[in-house]
Each structure stands twice: as structure tokens, then as C-alpha cells.
Amino acid sequence: MEALLLRASSYAADVDGVIHLITLLAGFWFIVAEVVLFYFIFKFRKKNNEKAQYITGEKKEEMKWIHWPHNLIIVCDIVLVFFAIKAWYHIKQELPDPDFTVKITGQQWAWRMQHPGPDKQLDTADDIELVDELRVVVGKTYHYKLESLDVMHSFSVPVFRLKQDAIPGRTITGWFKPTRTGAFDIQCAEMCGIGHGIMGARIIIETEEEHQKWMESLSGNSVAQAL
């Protein structure tokens, strides 16, 4: 997965881990089934009309060939379930205590990102609200409070392996922790009408200093605006 999409959050490796495990286990059974299928097709093709065998599949030793792979698949499924739920619990149910909290509101065809601003507290006078742009500091744990004003949207940052639908009428809390700097895509993953395609936003992960410099540059003119 790394080759296709780089990892930029702490739990991206967990999701990729589950994906690789599934590729390994399910892939093995897939190859076994396809090889057996094509082998049977080749081996038992019609050869100078000798008759086929009469196998009812009711006898024990015939069904053995089905039960054994079947039981092994159940074992693989149990292993998969364990790792999938472990990753899910870590990402979606555990909430590590945050360094910052941002408020993300989806509306018809734009994302509003409310940053805590210099005083690091949300819902205070100095909050900075950007549209279609989220500025975060690398290495810090962020909580996001996700809401939607009108229809279903879905806040998705592919490089974070993060996705959470924004439901009108609910406030959903989640967390992420960026691990590398850069500017990446935010996509809306739930059909939300005519502008669903242009709802793209950018997440800009910067170092502590750049973030401070950006806030100062803003507080310069935002103070003027606030008066």
C-alpha cells in the first residue's frame, strides 16, 4: 500500500497492516482456488469421449476435500477479525488526549475548518476559520469535531487513512496524529449533491515554527478585522 499511497498519520500503518494481512491470507486461498479451478478445467477436459466419474459428494472421504479448506478458512477469518477489530478499536474507539482540537463542518460543497488559534482553545475569539484548508502541526495529536450543516458529507484524508462521515444532527469526534509534513488532499467521500466533485480541500502539515509564523502573519491582519 505504501507504494500507492504514502502514510502521513500515526495509525496509517495499522490500516495498512490489516490490508497486508488480508492480502496475505485471502490472497493465498484465492490463488489456491484459481489454480485448482484451472487445473481441473485442463485435466478433465473432454478426451475422446471417455465417460466422466460418478461422484455424489455425500461420502465422508469425498467431502474431506471440502471440509479441510473450509475449516482453515474459518481459522484465517478468526485471525483477520482479531486484527481488524484491534485496528478499528485503536482508531475509532480510543481517543488519546489531544494537543489541539479542530472543528470541521461540512456543508454543501465546502469544508469549514475552525482552528483553535494562538490561545490553543477552541470557540474563543481568536479562532481562525478557513474554508477548504486545514493547517496542522506535525507530531501533535488532534481531535476533530465533525458536523454537517445540510446533507451527509464524509471527511476523508487518504494519506491519513482517515474517513468519517459527517451526519447532520450529530457531532462525531475522532483523532489523528500527522507524522510527516506536506500538503495533501481532503476528499468528500459521500455523495452530497451537484458540487460533490469540487468539495476538495487541502490539509497542510507544517512544523511548529511554520505554524507559529503562519498564525502571526494572520493575527496581524485578523486583529485589524476583529476590531
Binding site: T105, Q107, R112, I128, E129, L130, V131, L149, D150
Partner: peptide, 11 residues
């Protein structure tokens, strides 16, 4: 309601 949010201050 959709219209209630104030316009973004910055940006």
C-alpha cells in the same frame, strides 16, 4: 440551519 453560520473571518 445552513444559513446560520457566519462568513469565515479569515482566509
Amino acid at each position: 440551519a445552513p444559513g446560520s453560520l457566519s462568513q469565515p473571518k479569515v482566509n
